[in-house]
Design a protein around this nucleic acid. Sequence first.
DNA 1: AATTCATCTTGACAACGACAAGATAACGCC
DNA 2: GGCGTTATCTTGTCGTTGTCAAGATGAATT
Lengths: 201, 201
Amino acid sequence: MLKSKDSYHHGDLRAALIKAGEAVLAETGVTGFSLRAVAKSVGVSHSAPAHHFGDAKGLLDALATEGFRRFLAAMEARQAAEPSKDPRQQLLASGLGYLDFAISSPALFRLMFSTDKPEPKTSELAGAAKAAFMHLADSVARLRGVSPFEAPAAMTDVMAIWSMVHGFADLYIAGRLGPPDGKPVADREAVLVEILDRAMT
Amino acid sequence: MLKSKDSYHHGDLRAALIKAGEAVLAETGVTGFSLRAVAKSVGVSHSAPAHHFGDAKGLLDALATEGFRRFLAAMEARQAAEPSKDPRQQLLASGLGYLDFAISSPALFRLMFSTDKPEPKTSELAGAAKAAFMHLADSVARLRGVSPFEAPAAMTDVMAIWSMVHGFADLYIAGRLGPPDGKPVADREAVLVEILDRAMT
DNA sequence: AATTCATCTTGACAACGACAAGATAACGCC
DNA sequence: GGCGTTATCTTGTCGTTGTCAAGATGAATT
């Protein structure tokens, strides 16, 4: 018994709500986000989401969790498409995947890095976020030959690289890069590669 | 005739609302932000703010505008406190001011770089944001000896430096820097100076 | 002093998040 | 097969929110 549209029980409500929630989030942003709008777009009563996610924060957490998974997937996809196995090239490819995701889902990207830290380490959200961080740490480990958790210098590399990509992506989706009133940025990927290269010293 | 607390006309409502709005924003974040809560904290009717700011977005825009002014002031303050007049040292000091502001007003910082671009270039918001950008462009111009608006290489410097500080500040206030479950970051200023240095090549 | 007008209040409405109580059907157990 | 249990979804309600309309107040202007 899977999706039956007109039966009393939806059958796959949780997944449907996450999918619809992502669309609503992309359209209205976090501030305009409405549980009832999500429910309506799925064709379900206004308080149906409560049973699956508790309150509004619950659904947003689920969206952020799903976001971190796709975020990681975007970085890995770019790495897989990069022919060279050189750690430096792989790390640059990862950065391009980082930017890909931010551009394709700006509202979700913002939600994921929204100020509320993931509370307990047992939560799925924290796990997905940690997985994304570990991907970066591993990439730097391959580049430097040392684990960032053992060598402080490598941890500085992690922070430098992460700050650079994240800042570029965040400013880009805010439309704030380049001259104030000018167009976005000529060739964003070329620029990102060039400045990311600086972060690796 | 300035602030008279119990008269029908407040006398300085606009300024009072901005001040109170900033407090509410800091407490509840953008999502929990409420016009009525701001009005109540000033001791005024729930729809008094409308006359000064139109709708909720109007007040948030005013807060962001004020934020950009203090943002610029924070960078200049750090520069003034830096004894060396060397362009590189001055630029680093500016970066520390950037971080100062983000840490002291995280919610406001997020609001300022929130995705909605400043629409018309005539708005005060766009002007204040542009002033902050110009400060950075000027600093880079002094460092490189060329205006970023004339030399593409210098503009790349601007983007590299801005991305680095912004990313570091944004990740820091999100509590995401350093090991996933660890403490914030040992000496944040030393780390920022070190990685910012990389951005300048 | 009379009038004008910006400023602020009161009242209303639709939409929202959250809660409680009930309806429906899937599942387990005998 | 029949019955109770339980997860799932609906309906109804409450307090709060943003926005609009209409009125009250008093400062400024003439």
